[in-house]
């Protein structure tokens, strides 16, 4: 395993990201509300370059106390990266797909030291670029609601 610098903290927007390639391994490094996360740039769906997609806040349903859905709105607490191949959305804080926890990005260790962001590059000759989602694992019970307020 090799640790490399992904640049200075102040070079990252918040929310923001940088995608780097080191020795054939592609890694996306994200900042959201001052916290850093990093994931391999391989989408579990069909292997797309997930970390290079558009970033947007999570879309949530605005459900009232009476269970009426008035509209959709953007979350203030969750931010997603959207795979440019087919649009799967992953939470940049956890790497999880917004609908099912069985589908998640591969985490890469990341830390900040003296204002610099370091990631640990997986020690592999080739990055596994293929789909690995098969739907075989049981979907966990759904948490109640998806709104920020629940």
């Amino acid at each position: 395993m090799t640790e490399v610098s992904a640049g200075r903290v102040d070079a990252f927007a918040d929310p923001g990201r940088k995608v780097i390639e080191v020795g054939g391994i592609e890694i996306g490094i994200f900042q959201f509300k001052g916290a850093f996360t990093a994931f391999e740039n391989i989408c579990p769906h069909l292997g797309g370059p997930v970390c290079q997609g558009l970033m947007l806040p999570r879309t949530v349903d605005d459900v009232t106390q009476d269970n009426v859905n008035l509209a959709r709105s953007f979350s203030k607490t969750h931010h997603n990266v959207i795979c440019p191949w087919h649009g799967m959305e992953f939470d940049i804080s956890t790497g999880e797909h917004v609908t099912t926890k069985t589908l998640r990005l591969r985490k890469v260790p990341v830390r900040v030291e003296d204002g610099e962001v370091f990631v640990t590059v997986p020690d592999r000759k080739h990055q596994h670029v293929h789909a690995w989602f098969t739907g075989e694992r049981q979907r966990p019970p759904r948490e109640r609601g998806t709104s920020d307020r629940t």
Partner: peptide, 15 residues
């Protein structure tokens, strides 16, 4: 964990 001289890195742009 190995701390070596920074290997060449390439930045990949948003698609």
């Amino acid at each position: 964990l190995e701390r070596v001289a920074q290997p060449p890195t390439r930045e990949l742009a948003e698609i």
